[in-house]
Design a protein around this nucleic acid. Structure first.
Length: 491
RNA sequence: CGGGGUGUAGCGUAGCCCGGUAUCGCGCCUGCUUUGGGAGCAGGAGGUCAUCAGUUCGAAUCUGGUCACCCCGACCA
């Protein structure tokens, strides 16, 4: 069987596409631009969901669910938001089909079933949610309102790629309402912090926290905060956003409350989200030419046990494998035992490597006698014989070690590929020859940003929150600047 | 939506220029031998050649239309 992937160094996007399919994460569907997320891929997404959901609840949020459809009149209420998404909206215009009188067995849209008002399939839910919040909020006592929803959204993208950009994708969107601007800003920053923590501790992905420039801001927000990650090909990927909406949506949907002083005011809002795009980030950040490399905290199976059968009587071997599985599970490790006799060990080794299982254990009859087992690490591709005794403790420690090692590898790469550049020629050359995050001075104008984007395809990923004050000059216009911003070509 | 390309078995392909009912590999099924890094041998199943029309005794092949997908732009999490 030929399951060899293209090499990252030769064809990065080919490598990515093949990896997603061959590792059984997702595939293209019969619907243009929409993917089928397969069980193994979905299991990883479920781990992400569970972890994030817990973090949201620990920070005081609750889940709810709002409709998939947004009446057009509600959708257009917040002008900037509507305009920003208008070009990529799917619409429901009819509610019935009927038999085609001219072609047997075919259906046509029933022209008599045209909706009075078109329904927009949500590209994001601010409109439907804020129209609902109007009824829920009257007093400062009703605030803050801290709600999250897990949902699918549709954005009719021109060009799509599995996980990175699909016409339909899964995400969570938090929508909160507050009585003061300050509290809403705190919420925005708090959730950005949650995302950064999740990315670093679970995805093993170091990120830069920052604020978007006006050009890159979410349509309808006053400020967009983001976390930006660096992929192995030197391109940036926006891994999460958190928006301070000010009173824009409150005004658009007339959401007012009476404050402690008895005065009527508009409420302050935030929204924040991460999507199945994180799957793309996870894949591109860590995987290698042999396949997926999963951090133990998100791997559906942390350990796979492969019995090496030989001869006729392997009952003792299978029993031992079962026993090991139970012991490890008792210690809180997720284990898959692959005792199928339809595939050879070598096939299984390659298969689980492709699927990124962090640790592989191989046990044969000759190991039974010596009370040892072969342990192979996916992240380092190293093998060693270890005693069966104390295996669970060893593996628990090893899970942490692997998680840390994967993070460190990504962090070292990010550090190495984050370069300070002071002149535009070097900037262009760096983008082509040694891509990564580029820290450069910028005069703060949308015009210069646009010019750079048009000439180099690089955008300002963010103005980092922790950027130190530093006097310099814009690399394009020579105008003064007081901090460096992060440039990169991005997904 | 502009420019380019491709549709042949579950997947990847040859054949097309120069018309005669389709090649090879992987996968799948059966049997035997195998099993510590993607097994070997033997046998087998699987195709309206994207689709519609035209030319022709005869079309995967030539002509025209349609559809889908891919790549490069513009758009975007």
């Amino acid at each position: 069987m030929s399951k060899a992937l293209p090499k990252r160094s030769e064809d990065y996007s080919g490598w990515y596409n093949e990896l997603v399919k061959k590792a059984d994460l997702a595939e293209n569907s019969a619907v243009r631009g929409c993917m089928v997320i397969k069980p193994y891929g979905y299991a990883i997404w479920e781990k992400m969901q569970q972890t994030l959901d817990k973090m949201f609840k620990e920070t005081g949020h609750v889940n709810a669910y709002f409709p998939l459809f947004v009446p057009k009149s509600l959708f257009e209420a917040e002008e900037q938001n509507a305009e920003g998404f208008a070009k990529e909206c799917a619409l429901v215009t009819h509610y019935r089909l009927k038999a085609d009188p001219d072609r047997k067995g075919k259906l046509i849209v029933d022209p008599d079933a045209k909706l009075e008002e078109e329904l927009v399939v949500r590209p994001t839910s601010e409109a439907i949610i804020w129209s609902t919040y109007k009824n829920w909020i009257q007093s400062y006592r009703d605030l803050p309102l801290l709600i999250n929803q897990w949902a699918n959204v549709v954005r009719w993208e021109m060009r799509t790629r599995l996980f990175l950009r699909t016409a339909e994708f899964l995400w969570q969107e938090g929508h909160t309402a507050h009585s003061t601007a300050q509290e809403a800003i705190q919420e925005t920053e708090k959730m950005l912090g949650v995302y950064a923590e999740f990315a670093e501790n679970f995805l093993a992905l170091p990120v830069i926290k920052g604020i978007k420039t006006a050009n890159e801001r979410f349509a309808g927000a006053l400020d967009t905060y983001c976390i930006e990650a660096l992929m192995q090909d030197g391109k940036a990927l926006q891994a999460g956003t958190s928006h301070f909406l000010g009173q824009n949506f409150a005004k658009a949907f007339d959401v007012k409350f009476t404050n402690k002083e008895g005065a009527l005011d508009y409420v302050w809002g935030t929204s924040w989200g991460v999507s199945t795009r994180l799957m793309g980030a996870l894949i591109m950040a860590h995987s290698d030419d042999n396949g997926l490399v999963l951090p133990p905290k998100l791997a559906p199976h942390q350990v796979v046990i492969i019995p090496i059968v030989f001869g006729d009587d392997n009952s003792a071997l299978f029993e031992k494998c079962d026993e090991i599985k139970k012991t490890l599970e008792k210690a809180g490790i997720s284990v898959k035992l692959d005792a199928r006799d339809t595939h050879k060990p070598g096939w299984k080794f390659a298969e689980y490597e492709l699927k990124g299982v962090p640790v592989r254990l191989a046990l044969g009859n000759r190991d039974l006698a010596s009370n040892q087992i072969e342990l192979a690490r996916r992240d380092t591709l190293t093998k060693e014989m270890v005693p069966l005794e104390g295996l669970a403790e060893r593996l628990l420690a090893l899970m942490d070690e692997i998680q840390t090692n994967i993070y460190k590898k990504a962090d070292d790469f990010k550090t190495k590929q984050t370069l300070k550049v002071d002149d535009y020629e070097t900037f262009k050359k760096t983008l082509d020859e040694n891509p990564g995050f580029i820290l450069a001075h910028w005069d703060g104008t949308p015009e210069t940003e646009e010019k750079i984007k048009n000439e180099t395809k690089a955008t300002i990923r963010c103005i980092p929150l922790d950027a130190p004050e530093e006097n310099g000059f814009c690399m394009v216009t020579g105008k003064p600047s007081n901090k460096r911003v992060v440039f990169a070509r991005a997904y």
